[in-house]
């Protein structure tokens, strides 16, 4: 009997942990929105965070996008061999980069880079009492730490994503011309054939939500760090894992809701 109940107990406990976590995260989010009124506290910190979240992430995001674009073009031409005209390479590269790979790969890369960074930094501040120190110096820690990071994420992840999409498409384009013996006109024809302005809106909506998820989850795990260096490591790992999963779930969610 015990053995029979065990899986259910595990499932129940897992579900409760998840629900509790989501609840606490929701509370942090609500507090973040409230803390946003302390403009004097976070405004000065916003630009540095935008530099960290955005500018510093540009190289890795573009690197990923570059190779994604190349691979997409090559795989598309391989798949379409004979049966489908080659300008569909342009359709595939454009649509895929905009709708899916641009936002999602950038999001995943940034959850590793930015999310982990935030969780580690805030986690360290937590275990070394720096957050308490902020409080005693009359700084609301959420306004000081969370608001600028989340805002920077919301602003800069779409920016980085836009650049990544651009680079990915150009990489696919150059690949198509150089390696696939396609004409530039063919590729552009494919690119524009099914293009809708909504594609860009969709990508930006996704990227904005990813920016929010990555930073808020990073802050959440950072804030809830317990124990010393080990706790920080634990938080960092969890922040990356959870925000990556959240990105994929959110990705499916947007596809369901908006497409």
């Amino acid at each position: 009997m015990q053995l029979l109940l065990k899986p259910f107990a595990l499932l129940g406990r897992g579900g409760m942990t998840l629900a509790a976590g989501v609840g606490q995260w929701g509370r942090l989010t609500a507090e973040t929105v409230q803390a946003a009124r302390h403009v004097d506290v976070w405004l000065r910190l916003l630009i540095p965070q935008m530099a960290r979240v955005g500018v510093d992430s540009v190289p890795i995001a573009l690197f990923i996008a570059l190779f994604t674009g190349i691979v997409l073009a090559l795989q598309a031409s391989y798949t379409f061999t004979g049966a489908i005209p080659l300008y569909f390479v342009g359709v595939l590269v454009g649509k895929t980069m905009m709708l899916e790979l641009g936002p999602v790969l950038t999001g995943l890369a940034l959850s590793g880079r930015v999310g982990a960074n935030i969780a580690a930094e805030i986690g360290t501040m937590r275990v070394t009492e720096q957050i308490d120190a902020l409080e005693t110096l009359a700084y609301p820690p959420i306004a000081y730490l969370v608001v600028p990071r989340v805002l920077a994420g919301i602003i800069m992840v779409p920016v980085v994503t836009a650049l990544a999409i651009g680079v990915g498409i150009v990489a696919g384009w150059i690949t198509a011309i150089q390696l696939l013996d396609m004409s530039s006109a063919d590729f552009v024809n494919g690119l524009t054939l099914f293009f809708l302005p909504f594609d860009v809106t969709f990508a930006m909506i996704k990227a904005t939500s990813f920016g929010f998820i990555i930073t808020s989850i990073g802050c959440f795990f950072g804030f809830n760090t317990q124990g010393g260096a080990e706790g920080v490591g634990h938080s960092t790992t969890r922040a990356v894992v959870v925000s990556s999963m959240a990105i994929l779930v959110l990705d499916a969610f947007w596809a369901l809701v908006l497409l």
Binding site: M125, T128, Q130, A133, E135, T136, L137, A138, P140
Partner: peptide, 24 residues
């Protein structure tokens, strides 16, 4: 309330055990 607490904290200095200096 939170605002009053911040007011009070302006009058209180806290020396942390491990200094808790901001690394950045």
């Amino acid at each position: 309330a939170r605002e009053e607490l911040f007011e009070l904290r302006r009058k209180v200095g806290y020396v942390f055990q491990f200094a808790a200096l901001f690394d950045s």
